[in-house]
Design a protein around this nucleic acid. Structure first.
Lengths: 109, 109
DNA sequence: AGTGTTTACCTATCAGGAATAGGTATAGTG
DNA sequence: CACTATACCTATTCCTGATAGGTAAACACT
């Protein structure tokens, strides 16, 4: 919570899925940068957060990968699976449900 | 939210501070119930979550307590300190900042 | 040619906080 | 009396984001 304040649990996953839903295909390093720009630098995740998450999401069948050689090195491209799309919808729903409930609690006291 | 509860980090603290800001004074068991009703049962925290948090918040000087005997037992009433009020404002701000940023990321893709 | 920065991937370990699963004891109700 | 609700508590587990590294290619610049 040092760099990014609290309330971060689940947010990295949600943002990654959302970006991949909009962009069709991205590689890890690109995602790291895109998270910063998409959130107006409100959220800024390091590679140490993003890469392990990508691997976990792939292992869960939410993402599929494609390794493409760029010169002498290999870029790993990620894309959503059908399961990943469903997961994105569920998470988005949950995010808004919770957000609405907390907001109501904050205003009504 | 049953098995894996995403998006919950920081929320218990925020809700407790918010309730105490509106209600002036509450005891633990009361807070547990109030969180359920204030969020329309979207958030439902058990005592095992709330009590340790209350102790931690008190230790941090965000809450002050008053032990009052009710018959043969003792009720522990909690109230916000000035520091607690500040913390509530900061957290609320942060919550909305992050909420806005994520929402924008979700819609603009 | 050599130095430095950016790109691009990776892992291991830490820290924090919510969830789980208990426990104790009083008060009230059928 | 038995049962539930009230009211407090702790210890442990689990998840997951944060930290702090490491490797190596590509490119810029001097």
């Amino acid at each position: 919570m040092a760099a990014n304040p609290p309330f971060m649990s689940g947010v990295p996953e949600l943002l990654i899925l959302s970006l991949l839903n909009a962009r069709e295909e991205m590689y890890g390093y690109e995602i790291v940068a895109a998270i910063g720009t998409a959130t107006g630098a409100v959220v800024s995740l390091k590679e140490g957060v993003v890469y392990p998450l990508l691997h976990a999401l792939e292992a869960d069948g939410l993402l599929k990968t494609q390794r493409r050689p760029i010169g002498a090195r290999i870029r790993v491209y990620y894309a959503l699976t059908a399961k990943g799309v469903r997961r994105l919808f569920d998470l988005t729903d949950e995010w808004r449900r919770l957000g609405g409930a907390v907001e109501r609690a904050l205003t009504t006291g």
